[in-house]
């Protein structure tokens, strides 16, 4: 099951009540499914953009898992976040290959360019910064991912140009095509 997350510009803003209603539908569907916790958390994160406390409590009740267990699973996987993220998630690979080929410098450059620490979101809610451990693209090291786009052989000097493309609303598709061509 896939859930469309952010509404496009011009559509009405999805309210929290609507998001919770959507979550309730999902929970209804997964109520008696064994091993439902992780898929439900993924879907919930797609609905809300992050995992708010209230959603986790609702998941805990519906799936009959203790809140501490749910929180334990959320905390174990770096994919899950309990803080709201910006419109775009930047993940800097710090796997071995990327690390030795300058991933750390890329991360330092991003931290200073965006003025956020790892795990934080820019004040204008545009970017969230995170790190990853190997995206399986070691030949292209160092790589960063912005949302689903892989950017290869990134040099600190290129970052401003890359980020700029994401700042423009609607420009993401163009960026995505471009990034895809780069990786091919």
């Amino acid at each position: 099951m896939t859930v469309e997350s952010a509404p496009c510009a011009g559509c009405h803003e999805v309210t929290d009540a609507e998001r919770f209603a959507q979550l309730d539908d999902v929970l209804q569907q997964y109520r008696d499914v064994p091993g439902a916790l992780i898929p439900v958390l993924q879907i919930a994160q797609a609905i809300f953009g992050y995992l708010p406390d209230a959603a986790l409590r609702r998941i805990s009740t519906a799936l009959g898992k203790s809140f501490s267990e749910v929180a334990g699973v959320v905390g174990f996987y770096s994919f899950f976040t309990t803080v709201p993220r910006g419109r775009h998630l930047i993940r800097v690979c710090l796997g071995t290959a990327c690390y030795v080929r300058g991933g750390k410098d890329v991360l330092a450059a991003l931290r200073s360019a965006l003025r956020v620490e790892v795990g934080e979101t820019t004040a204008d809610q545009t970017f969230s910064l995170d790190v990853g451990r190997c995206f399986g693209a070691c030949g292209l090291a160092p790589v960063i991912m912005i949302d689903d786009d892989v950017h290869e052989r990134v040099r600190p000097g290129q970052l401003m140009g890359i980020l700029e493309k994401y700042r423009v609303p609607g420009a993401r598709d163009a960026v995505r095509r471009e990034a895809r061509q780069e990786t091919v």
Binding site: L56, K65, S66, F67, S68, E69, V70, A71, G72, G75, F76, T82
Partner: peptide, 20 residues
């Protein structure tokens, strides 16, 4: 059948305890 305590986080930072 209570589940008040669970492993939170991972690696060296794992802490056994209540949610978050």
């Amino acid at each position: 059948h209570v589940g008040a305590l669970w492993a939170q986080g991972r690696g060296f930072d794992t802490a056994i305890g209540p949610a978050f």
